[in-house]
């Protein structure tokens, strides 16, 4: 099982790398045929990632989401499928390139962290684990898409405002489609984030006897949640869109990353496990 799992992880890395390279080739050549191939490879990568997670599940005996390595692979997986599901509904020109690079970077980070199997602490042995952690990380997947969209928005907006058109101008999508992407991913991501916090809170009540204990991870999740809440509220009431929306998506994602890594390494607490 161990060998199969390792082999799968290597193939995930390899295939995603090829997908990223193909997307880059598409980005520079703008050849539609190349994009089709790149997308196919990314789908293959998504399937392989799923298989890897399944193999890891069989290997460790519980949902593989507790170690640093597992969480990041899961993150990459959710970004991949969030993108593919999004892609199914809208097309945003050249978005795939940036996203695939992000997915590959995540996988690269996961590859350098320890793949050792650590037994699950008793507190985590519950079916709440896949629900709470899974839902939270799916939220991260969508929020990372919003982040990519935000970066593209800012770059494109700068070119339009400064009226100096560089290499990216013709290759980047329209502002409106990026803003739409932002809105779609934020709302979806926010729903999952809320679910993650609610399920976590219920689980905490069961495991620790209290809904909320101001553990650093909880606190930061709440801060992240508030950042997104403000943003979504403002968007639907006074129309915080465009540049401000893009900046907020990036700020929100920074908070997500900090919740995921910063808290574990800097602050510790009940959510810091094997990682």
């Amino acid at each position: 099982m161990n060998e199969i799992s390792d082999l799968l992880f290597l193939s995930v890395l390899g295939v995603t790398f090829i997908a990223g390279a193909a997307y880059l080739v598409f980005f520079f050549s703008q050849n539609i045929q190349v994009r089709k191939i790149a997308r196919m490879i990314l789908v293959v990568s998504g399937i392989l990632q799923t298989l890897y997670i399944v193999s890891r599940y069989m290997l460790v005996g519980h949902t593989p989401i507790t170690s640093q390595h597992e969480a990041v692979v899961f993150f990459a997986w959710s970004t991949t499928w969030a993108y593919l599901s999004f892609r199914w509904r809208y097309t945003v020109k050249n978005f795939g390139t940036l996203v695939t690079i992000l997915i590959f970077s995540l996988l690269l980070i996961s590859s350098v962290s320890s793949r050792d199997i650590t037994p699950l602490v008793p507190a985590l042995q519950s079916w709440w684990l896949p629900v709470h952690a899974g839902v939270s990380i799916i939220a991260y997947g969508f929020l990372s898409l919003a982040f990519c969209g935000g970066i593209m928005y800012l770059l494109q907006e700068r070119e339009l405002k400064s009226k100096r058109f560089g290499y990216f101008f013709s290759r980047f999508p329209s502002l409106e489609s990026l803003d739409q992407l932002n809105s779609h991913c934020l709302t979806t991501g926010f729903v999952f984030l809320t679910l993650g916090i609610v399920t976590g809170s219920i689980w905490a009540r069961q495991a620790w006897g209290t809904y909320w204990q101001w553990d650093p991870k909880e606190t930061w999740s709440l801060i992240t949640w508030f950042i997104y809440l403000v943003q979504i509220h403002q968007r639907f009431t006074v129309g915080w869109r465009g540049k401000r929306g893009a900046v907020m998506a990036i700020v929100g994602f920074a908070a997500v990353i900090f919740t995921l890594w910063g808290v574990t390494y800097l602050l510790g607490g009940a959510h810091s496990y094997a990682g």
Partner: peptide, 9 residues
């Protein structure tokens, strides 16, 4: 062309 870059469609 510019309008399309801003508004898409």
């Amino acid at each position: 062309q510019l309008a399309e870059k801003i508004f898409g469609n």
